[in-house]
Nucleic acid binder design. Structure first.
Lengths: 111, 111
DNA sequence: TGCATGATTCAATAATTCTTGTAGTGTTAA
DNA sequence: TTAACACTACAAGAATTATTGAATCATGCA
């Protein structure tokens, strides 16, 4: 994970509908959802949803799998994890007591 | 933490120099650094650094404190934590085993 | 007060990203 | 093979964001 990839991922998430799509897929888990269902859930036109799904895919945050005439999208958990790790790397010079409640709460992620 | 705030924070981080500033401040911890030192560290002009610091501040990711004629910036750890939590909320419907290595590794955040 | 230093604000241009509609591709089933 | 469906690709105008230098503000000290 380098800075350029992180910026691409953060840019992908820095959009209302894309963030909603990402969070929806995080909730759903590895099984994912077809594009049409995603579009309906976040209230986006199919053409817009397709565009945003492509952006998230390109950023390495989700991945697509064709199943018959549907295309299912699911979160790319490793891509998400690497981004989160990159953001907090070497936090407080490895002295977690300096972060206050950050450590304790970060441990609750995806609990 | 709502979607709009999250998008503002993600947009703030989705920039090469701002991401570098943020990660630098995460490493440094609560004591922070003066604006000039931050600018020099990330190779930005003072005027550009000031602009980016303001963006990060406005997003609630860092905060400023004047100390004599210096202005020190430090990470706003609670703002960072809330963003990370928002991104992974209700992950896999509360069934962490579905995430694979995500849980285990998320726990290493800010270790 | 007057000056040097650290940092910010402003304004104009350049660059990127968003939005929307239309056309097109791939797949299923009659 | 033809029709219907799910989804994607492309293009153009609109809107937002980045960059830069000059001017300005705030503080400390002689």
């Amino acid at each position: 994970m380098n800075s350029k990839d992180a910026v691409i991922r953060l840019s992908a998430l820095a959009h209302d509908q894309r963030l909603a799509i990402f969070r929806l897929l995080v909730k759903v888990g590895p099984s994912g959802l077809p594009a049409g269902e995603i579009a309906a859930s976040v209230g986006a036109a199919p053409t817009a949803a397709s565009f945003h799904l492509k952006e998230l895919d390109r950023a390495g945050l989700i991945h697509a799998t064709r199943v018959g005439r549907y295309i299912r999208y699911a979160v790319h958990f490793d891509g998400m994890r690497k981004l989160l790790t990159f953001l907090t790397e070497d936090c407080c010079q490895g002295r977690p007591e300096l972060c206050g409640s950050t450590v304790k709460n970060a441990r609750k992620l995806c609990k």
